[in-house]
Write a protein that binds this DNA or RNA. Structure first.
Ligand SMILES: [Mn+2]
Ligand SMILES: [Mn+2]
Ligand SMILES: [Mn+2]
Ligand SMILES: [Mn+2]
Lengths: 132, 132
DNA sequence: TTGAAATGTTAGCTATGGCTAAGTCGAAGA
DNA sequence: TCTTCGACTTAGCCATAGCTAACATTTCAA
């Protein structure tokens, strides 16, 4: 009973943290590929408006994951970088695993975008082991 | 670009529908095991308050998935039943697959609770194929 | 150099999903 | 029967995540 509730609690928790992880991962990605992360590119890649990005970035700053001066590019704090690295690693493992079991690359990428937020260490280890 | 945005759109969509699926699945489960679904039991199993359940049930009624008279037990409409059956099937496949690749039963159950909402037909088919 | 376009910010709206507190109803026991 | 206790509802709070519209700043090209 309490055990089942615990499972749902974790699931809700993961859902709450999913967007945060996607943002820090995206910011790290943009910095890696474009040299810097701008709100407009985040908005474009996520398919939301710049206003939505602005509001979320405010929260991430409040949470100490992102730093930026007004009208400037976005940076990750140390804890932001750590979270991004973790998110990226998970993403890679999940995508590689899905492809490995025969899911087509584009579908693997799409599904991984959601699945990555709900994979425990144990499951992630199983995925990694089985994909190489 | 637009393709990546599409992936995130789907992921957000799945996130929005996750709670709905969990509710109809839970209601079907309770009807199957207890003979009827009561709000108090849903609240207990999800680990939330009855007030939270009441508000969500209002939405599900509005969406035509759940029916009930005041102070009465909850019922699923035909479309609610269809959605519940689908959710249950996904849940089973994901749990079975995770166990099959060596994830311990309790962790498999927990992870599946989140993963089930992000698995495309193609990935679900791959899971099913590989676990039996 | 200056004005237009791109980018970023802010205000304010909606809907959702949590919560507590307070009230209402109904069924079971004294 | 009557009371009481468990179950349900409702009101109202907060935070998040989306949106549009309006405004501010920066950048770029003429
Ligand atoms: Mn993701
Ligand atoms: Mn990702
Ligand atoms: Mn679930
Ligand atoms: Mn489920």
């Amino acid at each position: 009973m309490a055990e089942q509730a615990e499972g749902f609690r974790r699931s809700r928790e993961a859902r709450r943290n999913a967007l945060t992880d996607d943002y820090v991962e995206m910011i790290a990605d943009l910095i890696a590929t474009d040299g810097e992360a701008r709100s407009v590119d985040i908005a474009c890649r996520f398919g939301v408006t710049q206003a939505t990005v602005a509001k979320t970035i405010l929260r991430l700053k409040r949470e100490g994951l992102v730093a930026a001066e007004r009208y400037g590019a976005l940076h990750l704090t140390d804890s932001g970088k750590a979270k991004a690295a973790d998110a990226r690693a998970r993403h890679q493992v999940v995508v590689a695993f899905l492809k490995r079991i025969g899911v087509s690359p584009d579908i693997a990428e799409r599904d991984a975008e959601g699945i990555e937020h709900h994979v425990s260490e144990e499951t992630l280890a199983a995925f990694a082991r089985l994909s190489g």
